[in-house]
Amino acid sequence: CAFTHRPCSHPRLEGQEFCIKHILEDKNAPFKQCSYISTKNGKRCPNAAPKPEKKDGVSFCAEH
């Protein structure tokens, strides 16, 4: 993984420079932040999710 703030030993995603944990660092990657919002604390999930086809579409990470 090419994350520069600290060493990361996670494997890169195929065709990308970053792992799934750090892929949002790459603005050109086909990922965006997960659209899930917790009902308990109102916070948005920080994980990466595939970018949807539509610009305003929602997309969820593997956990959600």
Rank of each mutant, 00 (worst) to 15 (best):
N47M: 12
R6S: 13
I20V: 14
F3T: 11
E25I: 06
T4N: 05
E14W: 02
C8P: 00
Q16I: 02
K43F: 06
A62P: 12
N47R: 12
I37D: 03
C1R: 01
A62M: 10
P7N: 05
P11D: 12
I37Y: 08
K40W: 02
K40M: 01
S9C: 09
H22L: 00
A2M: 15
V58Q: 15
E14Q: 07
C19Y: 00
G15Q: 08
L24Y: 07
F31D: 08
A49R: 03
C8Y: 00
D56S: 12
A49C: 07
S59G: 14
C34K: 02
R6V: 11
C61K: 02
P7L: 10
P52V: 11
L13M: 13
L13V: 09
F18T: 02
P7W: 07
E17H: 09
G15A: 04
E25S: 10
P11R: 11
F3W: 07
A29R: 07
I23Y: 04
H22D: 00
C61Q: 02
Q33S: 06
S38N: 09
R44K: 12
R44D: 10
T4V: 02
E14G: 11
P11M: 11
P50K: 06
P46T: 13
A48W: 03
E14V: 10
C19A: 00
I37P: 08
I20G: 10
H5M: 15
C45V: 02
Y36K: 15
G57D: 08
Q16E: 04
S59D: 09
K43R: 13
E17G: 04
A2Y: 04
P46N: 15
S38G: 13
K43Y: 13
A49F: 09
S35P: 06
C1T: 00
H10G: 15
P50W: 04
P50Q: 04
C1G: 01
P46Y: 10
A29W: 02
G42F: 05
P30T: 06
E14F: 04
G15T: 02
N47D: 15
G42T: 13
A49N: 08
N41T: 05
T39W: 01
C19K: 01
C1E: 03
S9Q: 09
A29K: 06
A29E: 03
P30E: 04
A48Q: 04
K27D: 06
K51E: 12
F31R: 05
A48P: 11
H64C: 13
I37E: 14
E14P: 08
E14K: 04
S35L: 08
P46W: 14
P50D: 03
T39N: 13
G15W: 01
K21D: 07
D56T: 13
K51M: 10
R6L: 08
E63G: 14
I37F: 15
Q16G: 03
C19T: 00
H10C: 15
P50V: 05
G42V: 10
Y36T: 13
N41V: 14
P50F: 08
D56Y: 07
H5Q: 15
F18Q: 01
P11H: 04
V58N: 06
G42S: 12
G15H: 04
K40V: 01
Q16W: 05
S9F: 15
